[in-house]
Design a protein around this nucleic acid. Sequence first.
DNA 1: GTGTCAGGTGAACACTCGTTCTTGGACGGC
DNA 2: GCCGTCCAAGAACGAGTGTTCACCTGACAC
Lengths: 197, 197
Amino acid sequence: MTFTQTTRINTKDDLRNHARQLFAEHGYEGVSMRDIAAAVGIRQSAIYNHFPSKQHLLVDLMVSHMEQLLDAMRAAVGTSGTAAEQLAAFAQFHVTYHIDQPEDTFLAYMELRSLGPEGRAAIVPLRNAYEARLRQIIEAGARDGVFKVADVALVVRAILAMLTGVTVWFRDGGRLDRETAAGAYVATVLQSVGYAP
Amino acid sequence: MTFTQTTRINTKDDLRNHARQLFAEHGYEGVSMRDIAAAVGIRQSAIYNHFPSKQHLLVDLMVSHMEQLLDAMRAAVGTSGTAAEQLAAFAQFHVTYHIDQPEDTFLAYMELRSLGPEGRAAIVPLRNAYEARLRQIIEAGARDGVFKVADVALVVRAILAMLTGVTVWFRDGGRLDRETAAGAYVATVLQSVGYAP
DNA sequence: GTGTCAGGTGAACACTCGTTCTTGGACGGC
DNA sequence: GCCGTCCAAGAACGAGTGTTCACCTGACAC
């Protein structure tokens, strides 16, 4: 008596979505294949028709997130404008993207340690490419003398940590709305590189 | 034939130290009582002579860390000096403390979600007290007009996230030494609140 | 109608998990 | 010498882990 077996539309995407949410909430190690299956409404064994292992599921989630993040960032920041404009666009993008996709981004920054060597090898270049774009902007501003930074690599990491931290406290319906929060981060980032308009 | 049974000096501290390191490396869920016991050189069952449960071990670690952090911060920052001086002292302290105790601090910021309600109830007030001190400093600087901040609560969280991020990349023997890194963070933090000396 | 097949099921595998319990040796106080 | 305390060992508990496998079923192509 297996009724709804054929009413499923896209089990693979359902698995991705529920796994993303559960991993973000309890951590990779804290979620079992049975938990994920139960959330989707199938049995644990059926997951293996879509993903060869739990680890592959995690890597799939993290890689696709990083690719989307990278593409979206490049589209949002562009290549024209001053260093200050690009930095503002970058900060604005990073904060709003992280507000809109808190689970994905939380996962990407927290579960690197749950990745095996092959998974890490897939993620690290994508992260580096993302960081490299910010580094480019900071370097351009420093070269032009509009930014004052003590150490470029350190400031790049400091800015990313500062912006990503938005996921920890931001809640829809809280004291600040998306735009106000993003604006405050943009202003803080611009000040942090010593930009005086 | 249990030879070394009595040669143990302080098993409880050994447990704390090894558990701290293992939790920081693999996450709370990723470490078993057997792992911890093996690291210390005893059997799993002997752990329960010192801690009533794995959860209590985690709470012990996190609470004692937060208490030490809070005490050390208050000693380092003091209560005299201008807002800028206090902020510089705070940033300097936070970075060097996190560089020196990376496991403790990583744990404290990552494993809140592994805490049960009673553990969370013990930690949250300590975290709040720590944040509150930084908030005090920022507010004083903003009141005096030497700091320009878009939103005090947001900037407090932004600064903490930025500074805590040092644990992700800093390695002893790397390109930057402790003092250089801490100095760069101090400069970046002061700029981020719009302080112009 | 019949064959193919993606995608379900349920049972089972071999572990590992946190925790409990009984046992026994070493030790300081009396 | 004896006793209570501390703290270790080792076996066992029931439950949960990721994964595999044989089997079944509904939908679609021809």
